[in-house]
């Protein structure tokens, strides 16, 4: 499904995922071509206090540099960033990261809604957002907000998502530009 042409000047690809998204990200991230000229930022719900670094986990599988954000890190095009576990992640106008340890939102910290909105406020129509598998409703409102701000939105095909609640929650409230399986998502990202 394709509603309209994708904005050719994407500056940030922001991906939100929860339960069932880890495996999808293991499929998607390593296949993103090396010479991307936009920022990739991933908000993935996961357990706090795990000893393995998510940056190492994914860094070993791709030639793109992968970082877990620290406070005030700059988001540099060509890199992949993960929101750290147990912090909300906001983006400043100068494209540095501000972390936030306030109340959970949608029972989640990091909350996908918070980062999606923040990305949209800074990158506006140059935002491309993907919402993947998950068991709650985080991300749906943020994705809609991006869409209203003329960003491009993709929802993982609920038929393919391991847990379809999160994609379905988004589809309930608005119509994204694309509903795609992970293979098409990779193809689309690499066509940018």
């Amino acid at each position: 499904m394709e509603k309209n042409k994708i904005n050719p000047k994407i500056e940030i690809l922001v991906i939100g995922g929860s339960a069932g998204s880890f495996e999808v990200l293991l499929q998607i991230l390593p296949k993103i071509k090396f010479d991307i000229d936009f920022v990739v930022l991933v908000v993935l719900h996961r357990k706090h206090n795990s000893n393995t670094s998510i940056a190492d986990l994914f860094g070993n599988k791709t030639s793109i540099p992968v970082y877990e954000c620290e406070d005030k890190d700059s988001l540099v095009p060509g890199n992949i960033y993960f929101a750290p576990a147990d912090y909300h992640l906001l983006i400043e106008k100068d494209r540095t990261v501000s972390l936030d340890y306030s109340e959970k939102e949608n029972y989640s910290r990091p909350a996908i809604d918070i980062t999606f909105k923040s990305a949209s406020d800074v990158f506006k129509e140059k935002t491309l957002a993907v919402l993947l598998s998950g068991a709650n409703r985080d991300g749906a409102n943020g994705l809609k907000y991006i869409s209203q701000n003329y960003g491009t939105t993709i929802v993982q095909d609920p038929n393919e998502a391991e847990i379809s609640t999160m994609p379905n929650e988004a589809l309930k409230i608005f119509e994204p530009n694309y509903i795609l399986g992970f293979k098409e998502i990779i193809k689309l990202i690499n066509s940018l």
């Binding site: 906001l90 936030d100 306030s102």
Partner: peptide
């Protein structure tokens, strides 16, 4: 204060 976070608050 960090603008993005205080604006959100």
């Amino acid at each position: 204060y960090s603008k993005a976070s205080i604006k959100r608050r």
